[in-house]
Amino acid sequence: MANLPFRIVMASALALAVAGCAKKKPAELPPPPASGPADTGADTSGTSTQTGDVPGSRADFLRQAGTDTVYFVTDSHDIDSEAQAILLRQAQWLARNPRVRVTVEGHADERGTREYNLALGDRRANSAKNFLAANGVDAGRISVISYGKERPAATGSDESAWAQNRRAVTVVPVGGTGF
């Protein structure tokens, strides 16, 4: 029975501690967030937030540039007129978003040795980089990497698959800034 007063004191202390931890409702709720585009540091001229694209984002890049990929003919790293038009749109987007850095990936089809395809992918990535730089994009904002035949866009051993794999891809990070 000597423990009874001690138990009462402990139970009371426990009840006070639990009551003190209860979450209280705020007297007034904060205002809802403003309904404007997020500040990404990117230029918003000529962009539309109706599609939900954040200016300077990967989605904005794909919408405005049309595509992130240019294709090459077999054993070539020459930029043809179709690739020039695509890369020019990419360069214009990059000019409007000067804080965005990109990586150009070079790829090859499955034919040829691993070493040959890595070198060919590197030449393709550098051709795309050089075109972008020649059209006003600071070369320091562009990194290149070659995957050779290691990351095919299409599987198969026919001309259709090979044509899809002979490419250079301009990669804009999901958040819009990179490296």
Rank of each mutant, 00 (worst) to 15 (best):
I79L: 03
I8W: 08
P37T: 07
G136N: 03
G140L: 05
A83L: 06
P26S: 12
M10G: 09
R151C: 10
L14R: 13
N165S: 01
S143C: 01
T44N: 07
P173V: 06
A91N: 02
S157D: 15
L14D: 05
I86L: 13
F131E: 14
Q164Y: 08
R111N: 02
P98S: 03
E159F: 07
A128Y: 14
V100A: 15
A161G: 00
F131P: 06
S157H: 15
P37D: 12
A91L: 00
L120N: 00
A11P: 01
A42G: 02
I142K: 10
A27W: 12
A153S: 11
L4I: 11
R124V: 11
A65Q: 14
A85P: 06
A119F: 00
R151M: 09
G136M: 02
Y147E: 10
A134W: 09
L29E: 11
C21Y: 14
D43S: 13
N3Q: 09
D39R: 11
D109L: 04
G156P: 00
G46I: 01
W162V: 04
P32L: 07
N130S: 09
R166L: 01
N165T: 00
A108T: 01
A65M: 10
D60F: 01
R167E: 03
L62E: 14
S76C: 04
F6G: 15
K25G: 09
T113I: 05
V104K: 01
